[in-house]
């Protein structure tokens, strides 16, 4: 009786389902190709998912708090462009990186302030700011590609102890935010806000302040991701971040983060990122055309949403 209950609990646990899926997926693909399950390929996958993985951490915090952000792709573009343009114009790397990073944080704080003060729907507000930040990115770059000319390679192109730095950053950001959600009062409030804002308010929680804080955290992770991205690519264009918003939302949802807010974990979202990365890597190795890869990605997202809705306690 208790055992069957525990089993049912596990099957309801989306992180666990995801873990099983990952294992099954790895077994199947590695039986199809000997290139898949090798240390160098797996490190390669981790490096490929580093940027989206870092963004997903912030996005997860936002979604957990009952928010959403579709402007993050253009925030990445703007932030990376600012850094690249400054380096191209002879600014020191440190100043350029701090400026680019700060732009990302400020952009998200703006999102947070508007969303928390106006109580408007986050998806619509960030649809608007998305366009604003895209416009700024185009203004900053003038529409050209800006090369770093070999400067600022550390964050994107170097290894520490044979491990690529982007992977280290990815792991560090995940651990840091995991700890933040677990041990800080702020972390508790993220969940509470997302699960029931009214009850949170009655219980003495400062809704506006905490929402702004949520988007600030998101801005910090987006800024880090932008710096890793620009360093790895070695140049910046005004649309380099396009698409990260959808992939990070998808990864979080696949990872069991409820799109309604209040439920989900950093670990789950991370597994979601890994699954997406492995799928696209496997399809590459198996020589599946990229148009089919889009179809596969879409199918996985739809399945994940169906599974998470079926398991939801809020039906």
């Amino acid at each position: 009786m208790t055992r069957s209950l525990a089993l049912r609990g596990l099957l309801r646990n989306q992180t666990f389902i995801l873990f099983l899926t990952l294992v099954a997926f790895i077994i199947i693909v590695s039986s199809l190709s000997s290139h898949f399950l090798t240390l160098s390929n797996l490190l390669n996958v981790l490096q490929q998912i580093a940027v989206v993985g870092i963004i997903t951490v912030g996005m997860t915090v936002v979604i957990l708090s009952g928010g959403l952000d579709i402007s993050v792709g253009t925030v990445i573009s703007l932030s990376a462009s600012v850094t690249a343009v400054m380096i191209g114009n002879g600014a020191s790397v440190a100043v350029a990186v701090i400026a680019g990073f700060a732009i990302a944080v400020v952009s998200q704080v703006v999102n947070g302030v508007i969303i928390s003060l106006t109580k408007c729907i986050p998806i619509i507000i960030t649809l608007g700011t998305m366009s604003i930040y895209q416009g700024f990115a185009l203004l900053v770059t003038g529409g050209y590609t800006h090369n770093l000319q070999g400067a600022f390679q550390f964050l994107g192109r170097s290894d520490v102890l044979y491990i690529p730095v982007p992977v280290l950053v990815l792991v560090a950001v995940n651990i840091l935010v995991f700890l933040l959600l677990k041990y800080l009062k702020f972390g508790r409030r993220v969940y509470v806000l997302g699960a029931n804002e009214n009850a949170a308010f009655v219980s003495g929680i400062n809704i506006i302040g905490n929402k702004i804080l949520v988007y600030t955290v998101h801005g910090v992770t987006a800024g880090i991701a932008a710096m890793v991205l620009v360093s790895r690519v070695g140049s910046a264009i005004a649309v380099m971040g396009t698409g990260y918003e959808l992939r990070s939302i998808a990864a979080a949802v696949i990872g069991g983060v409820s799109i309604m807010g209040g439920e989900g974990t950093i670990l789950g979202a991370f597994l979601g990122v890994v699954l997406l990365g492995l799928i696209s890597n496997a399809l590459n190795i198996l020589n599946v055309p990229s148009s089919f890869q889009n179809v596969a990605l879409g199918v996985v997202i739809v399945l994940a949403v169906i599974i998470s809705t079926m398991g939801s306690k809020r039906k």
Binding site: N196, A199, V202, G262, E263, K313, R314
Partner: peptide, 13 residues
């Protein structure tokens, strides 16, 4: 249910 509790979170929280 609407203004007293965070239904999907734990007793502790």
């Amino acid at each position: 249910q609407k203004t007293g509790l965070i239904l999907v979170r734990s007793v502790k929280e």
